[in-house]
């Protein structure tokens, strides 16, 4: 059995762009990425799309489908009404390269600014001991496939690109939280979280959590705990009062 889907795909590059409509055959069980591939193979051989694993594990095929940030490989066509027009657009927050491909280098630049993991000394036998309950929080964060959908949906940079130099974005709050909670790590990244990474810009509207294909509780388990750790150090009113009094003397 097959049906015809009405696809409206953004085609364009750094200079110009517009919607292009395609009618495509769809087979049972197919996902949006299959349909994009069929357009590529039959109607538009130069349609640019980034993808790798087609199994939701590599996080390459991020796009905005009917305006919602999603992985194309994990969006099944039967999610949509038969005959419904389906729009596929590139992620909005990043500069467009071509068609559905955007320049996500911002994220790789931010990654470089996060100080590396710095473990404490190992046990006498040269290995480490960590208990399962101590690694579980970090393991949730390390499910991240770096699809950058959370970065893309975050209005702090999506609607205010001028904030990019001051804001690391949800993906890197997840990374910071992971390192901060790592039972072996000895580096202190709270000042970075507050200042350069700008965790204060986040107003916890939770869109990052909503779009995460790995279902990481980005806001509840990473960002808010980071905010709380920052509050511990920088916004404790008693500590603040103390520092005011002592600095006056």
């Amino acid at each position: 059995m097959s049906e015809t889907a009405k696809m409206r795909v953004f085609r364009g590059d750094t200079e110009s762009g517009d919607w292009q409509d395609y009618e495509v055959e769809v087979e049972e069980g197919q996902v949006v990425l299959d349909v994009i591939h069929r357009i590529q193979a039959t109607q538009a051989p130069d349609l640019a799309v980034r993808w790798n694993c087609k199994a939701g594990k590599c996080g390459s095929c991020s796009a905005e489908i009917n305006g919602e940030p999603r992985l194309m490989c994990m969006t099944r066509m039967n999610l949509f009404e038969v005959g419904e027009q389906i729009t596929v657009a590139p992620m909005k927050t990043w500069p467009l390269i071509r068609d559905l491909v955007t320049d996500v280098s911002f994220n790789y630049e931010v990654a470089k600014t996060i100080p590396a993991f710095k473990p404490r000394e190992p046990e006498a036998d040269g290995t480490y001991r960590m208990m399962q309950e101590d690694v579980e929080r970090g393991q949730e964060f390390r499910k991240c496939i770096e699809c950058f959908l959370c970065q893309n949906v975050c209005h702090v940079i999506r609607d205010h690109p001028e904030n990019k130099p001051e804001f690391a974005g949800p993906r890197f709050f997840v990374r910071l939280a992971e390192l901060e909670m790592h039972p072996l790590d000895t580096e202190d990244r709270l000042e970075l979280a507050r200042k350069d990474a700008g965790v204060g810009y986040c107003n916890i509207t939770k869109c990052c959590t909503e779009v995460c294909p790995e279902e990481i509780h980005i806001t509840d388990n990473a960002i808010i705990p980071l905010k709380e750790r920052v509050a511990d150090r920088y916004f404790d009113p008693i500590r603040w009062l103390g520092s005011k009094i002592f600095s006056r003397r």
Partner: peptide
């Protein structure tokens, strides 16, 4: 923003920073 992937209100944004 009013909802995810919907443009927010306001020219500049500093959030809770």
């Amino acid at each position: 923003p009013p909802a995810c992937a919907v443009g927010d209100l306001g020219k500049s944004y500093k959030g809770e920073s």
